[in-house]
Write a protein that binds this DNA or RNA. Sequence first.
DNA 1: AAATTAAATTAGATATATCTAAAAAAAATG
DNA 2: CATTTTTTTTAGATATATCTAATTTAATTT
Lengths: 220, 220
Amino acid sequence: MDLTIAEENYLKAIYHLSEGGKKSVSTNDIAGEIQTKPASVSDMLRRLSDKHVIQYKKYYGLQITESGKQLALQTIRKHRLWEVFLVDKLQFAWDEVHEVAEQLEHIQSSLLIQRLDAFLNYPKFDPHGDPIPDEYGDVRSRPRIPLNEMNIDQVGQIVAVKDSSAAFLRYLDKVGAYIGARIKVLDKVEFDGSVEILVDQKKTLFMSKDVASNILVLQS
Amino acid sequence: MDLTIAEENYLKAIYHLSEGGKKSVSTNDIAGEIQTKPASVSDMLRRLSDKHVIQYKKYYGLQITESGKQLALQTIRKHRLWEVFLVDKLQFAWDEVHEVAEQLEHIQSSLLIQRLDAFLNYPKFDPHGDPIPDEYGDVRSRPRIPLNEMNIDQVGQIVAVKDSSAAFLRYLDKVGAYIGARIKVLDKVEFDGSVEILVDQKKTLFMSKDVASNILVLQS
DNA sequence: AAATTAAATTAGATATATCTAAAAAAAATG
DNA sequence: CATTTTTTTTAGATATATCTAATTTAATTT
């Protein structure tokens, strides 16, 4: 039983919200995540339930099933592999890839994804630093902490961002805080939580707590 | 005014049928080309006419407009570029690419196609030997003739096939008559039109007129 | 616990895309 | 040229996916 593109998008949103730590996923949450109205979500939940990718009781709540989780992970796998392709092979900037990957993730061909994976040399992380599930849906994530929670003199590498809006990504690119950059915490201001960091051992950068909390660092 | 995926597919079919030499394109022809029913075609013709990509008069006939032609050519451009990608970069066999390219051709991103074109080094022909329209819709096609119309001792290169069904393509691969193969006509049997050719200066091959007429050769 | 507010669902519409069956128009045939 | 056949179109259904407005259920407040 195959999913339509709309169903795949809803399921991916539900998966992301489920993994996002929140105890339960509400109709309103889903509507907010995919820019639609709660009425449309209710409709879709019934359909997803019919296809057994979620368990759903009206007015009560929902839970993603194991098969639903696997389908969502495969969509995420495709999305992130295409992002690597766009950045590594087609010289896209990392803030330009999302919209196109949203389309490419729905192409149906397991051979294509196998070959693409090999062509890209089996990448484990996408350009935003998010882990790429393998063909069995397994995800190896690295322990990452927000930049504002690091201590003075600690070093690490920027591996991901929480807020991946185009505006935020452009801001980061502009100030030179790209994914992969090696950083060292030089100073932290106690009362407002802002931080000063050294990027690639040459450039110092000040940023607010707000910005720093959206940058995830792999400590080394 | 953008076209839906279904509209793009109909328009592409109409373009192919229009270019196919036939004087007029019938509802039944289109239904046959796209595997749908004539009633669905009538419906779609009305919609395509509303969007001014064809001119259409009920019971009378249709003609593709200039803007329709341009849109069709851009879809064909995308299809053929993706085919080159699949064969050159992802090691797909040339008889495995069609179905996937049918999906990829609908991805909307002009930047993507620009970059893909550059990445593939601006190819002029797809793996089946068909010309790739440029970004302005211009097509430079090579003069090609069916293999059965060549004369004895003439040499050339296989550049395309008329019948691109998977069965025919697999047959060609099996006997070693791939796209790009250099051939020489050794003999022609008058009464049944069958031909004997030399492939890559080492392998001789017999084929019926039926097969030979579906193989297009660039003479040299 | 009754009243209010918030969240979720249903009812009814709209748009796309398809189908079958019936009707209308054009083409072919005797 | 009237009749038959073929082609094309319309009418009416179905399925997906969405919306607004109304209703129902759950949660919160007093």
